[in-house]
Structures are given as C-alpha cells and as structure tokens.
C-alpha cells in the first residue's frame, strides 16, 4: 500500500479511513519519503487528522487541513493547497476523504487535477459497522462512492474490528468478506489492517495478504473500560 504517488482513502463513515491514512503517511515519512497528508473530511466533526497535527509535524508529515479556529469548525473547508499538491510530483500525497459518498463528493470536485495522476483509491471496510454488515451492502457503498468521487476503487483494505474487543476471528471473518467484495469489484484486497498485538497471529493465519500494523493515534482519552488509558493532550489521545 501507499506505493503510488497519490493514495486516496475512502470508505463508510467510521470504517477507519483516518487511522489508515495517518498510519500510512507516518510510515512513508519514517522511510524518508516526502509526504503530505491531505484532510478533506467534511463529514465527521471529531477525531479528524488535525487532532494529531503536532505529532504529524514532529514525524515529518505535512498536514494539509484547516488550522486555528477553523480546525474545530463544522464547515466543509477544502484548502487551496490540496489542488496544488495533486499536481506536485515532488512528493507523495495521502488523502483522507470523508465518509460515504457524501465525503467522496469532494474528490469529484478535484477530478480535473486528479485526472492523469493515476491515484490509488483504497476502500476501507469494517463489516462490524452497522451500514456495511455484508458483501452486497459493501459493494453498493463502493459504487456510490465511485460515482461521487468520479474515480474507480483500485483496492480494498480489510479493517474489520471491534476496538478493544477485537479477536482474530473478528478480523479473519472480515477479511473473508473483504475478499468476496474485492472479487465482485474486480480488485484485490491490498492489506488487512491489524492493531499492534494481533498482527503476527493474523500474518500466520492469512498468508498472501499484507498485514498493515495499525497504531491508534486519533482517539478519545476514555479508552475501553478495563484497559489503561495513555497520556492525553487537551482533547484527544496522541500516543
């Protein structure tokens, strides 16, 4: 994943797009690749990439997202630098789109600058989310997103989980449905995202698919009931 110059992360509201985009950008930066993370999430009001602005800056990722008071506004702001970056071949770009076809509509407005750039359009799927419980609903959602984005899905990231209650069975069941969805769409499952701790077990159980170890970065300070909560900043945990 994240091999092409522009990688766009799309999917259902709450499917895990932001965490995957942030982790992808951080991984590229750690490998020495100049990378910009573009936040065009105009759907959700909390838990956006901008919550991790300082952390991303420290790690060498350029975050392109509303700043100052606009960072906590519920306004559909798309910064002009987004269009510049789509054409700037000197760096890689990871785009965190908003949820559903509603969020993907912003991509449609960028179709003139994305044309010819051959972006990777990764569809994130969590089959434990209420509106994508099965393969047909995931395929229907993919089609809606493609129409709004004016782009075709080029790969799938299997991200089925239940936060702290995730088990290997939950992940593997989701991977199976992600593969069926990929077959229906004519693309591949590019990776299975796994929170650190279960990644080795999944790698052993699911050979032939990239295991993308996920570090949860943007999340609330309340944590699961029975687990330790790490240090917190003023609003969201950044660990």
């Amino acid at each position: 994943m994240f091999e092409r110059r522009i990688t766009i992360v799309v999917g259902h509201f709450g499917s895990g797009k932001t965490e995957i985009a942030v982790n992808g950008a951080v991984r590229l930066a750690a490998g020495g690749t100049p990378v910009a993370l573009v936040d065009i999430d105009v759907v959700k009001p909390y838990f956006r990439t901008r919550e991790a602005r300082d952390l991303l800056s420290d790690l060498g990722v350029e975050l392109v997202a509303p700043a100052g008071e606009n960072a906590t506004a519920d306004l559909p702001i798309v910064l002009p630098r987004v269009r510049t970056l789509c054409r700037d071949t000197s760096r890689k770009v990871v785009v965190d789109a908003g949820g559903d076809d509603t969020g993907a509509r912003v991509l449609g407005s960028l179709s003139d600058v994305l044309a010819g750039q051959a972006p990777d359009l990764l569809l994130v799927l969590n089959f434990r989310r209420p509106f994508t419980p099965d393969v047909p609903s995931a395929v229907a959602m993919a089609r809606d997103i493609e129409a709004a984005a004016r782009l075709k899905v080029t790969g799938i990231v299997a991200n089925t989980h239940l936060m702290a209650e995730t088990t290997a069975d939950v992940i593997l069941d989701g991977l199976r449905m992600a593969r069926e969805t990929a077959d229906m769409l004519g693309v591949d499952v590019r990776a299975v995202a796994v929170e650190e701790g279960l990644d080795r077990e999944i790698a052993a159980a699911a050979p032939g698919v990239e295991v993308f170890p996920l570090k949860r970065i943007v999340q609330p300070p309340v944590g699961p009931m029975n687990l330790k909560v790490p240090r917190t900043g003023p609003l969201f945990v950044v660990r």
Partner: peptide
Amino acid sequence: DGLIGQMMEP
C-alpha cells in the same frame, strides 16, 4: 457529552 455521541465502541 459530545464524546458519548461521537466515539465508537462495541
């Protein structure tokens, strides 16, 4: 509070 509305849990 706003977190109850926005955060995700099983």
